[in-house]
Design a protein around this nucleic acid. Structure first.
Lengths: 139, 139
DNA sequence: GGGATATTTGCAATACTGTTGCAATTAAGG
DNA sequence: CCTTAATTGCAACAGTATTGCAAATATCCC
């Protein structure tokens, strides 16, 4: 069983208040978080700049990953199943509900391979599906 | 053979200088364009607000489509193959080169279907592949 | 534990991005 | 050509992101 500090240490990061708090927030949140969500949920205890830098660091260290969107925002999410192994995979499909705007990491749905035209060398693939989540569908 | 004005008229839009110019820019550009690119390439002849509104209108009318990114920007691209038919399809895969940052619409590569977990109802799917394009691979 | 060092944080300033209301301009249609 | 409706530009504003630098703090080694 890992706690915040262990995850940070394993990534070679200093254990600081902001990092612990922000990481905790990710661990407690089911869906993905935007920068603004993090500021709100930490009661603005940390400077905006610190949040930006923390997110950037976490992405670099493979603790969280980014989810592309078409609304000029970036969502960040922790890879539950794989992070524990220190082996980062974020090649799963993301689902964004058009009704409640929640984002889901479909950890069990991997992004399918596609055949690219001659000359293109793929490194990573991201897939975002939009639609209705179970809660909104039944509402 | 269609020109700018025809495309605009077909979409039920007034033919104005800004719309003609911005549409022309899309027709002349191989990759995708961000808002900032458009401002640059039109020599800031139009107000920022006009560019925003024009892009929004084009998206609504199905003349261009948005491409999700993870860098807090939205890219816009014209769907070459399908727009001519007034029938909008943007379910193709996008490729972003990590070296030159150019974006390619792989019109012939359709986004594969994925099986979602119970409860999720998909409406649309987007896929973005990053890696090296042919020019950068050979450089 | 204490102190030196390297990292991290917060602040200030700045730049970029996106939105809204309103008046002036321009396109469309008769 | 003239009226009407749509579009544009301006101004103001709000939100988002970045950088440099000094102060604070975590780490490491003794």
């Amino acid at each position: 069983m890992e706690n915040h500090s262990d995850i940070l240490k394993k990534s070679g990061l200093s254990v600081t208040e902001s990092r612990k708090k922000i990481l905790e927030l990710f661990l407690d949140t089911e869906g993905a978080l935007a920068h603004a969500d993090i500021e709100k949920n930490t009661d603005a205890a940390f400077d905006r700049v610190t949040v930006y830098r923390t997110l950037q660091t976490f992405v670099e260290k493979g603790i969280i990953h980014q989810i592309p969107t078409t609304d000029n925002s970036v969502l960040y999410a922790l890879c539950r199943h794989n992070c524990e192994q220190g082996h980062h995979h974020d090649n799963h499909v993301h689902f964004i509900c058009t009704n409640c705007d929640k984002t889901f990491c479909l950890d069990d749905v991997t992004v399918p391979d596609v055949k690219l035209p001659q000359g293109f060398t793929p490194a990573q693939a991201a897939m975002v599906v939009t639609g209705l989540c179970m809660d909104c569908k039944n509402a």
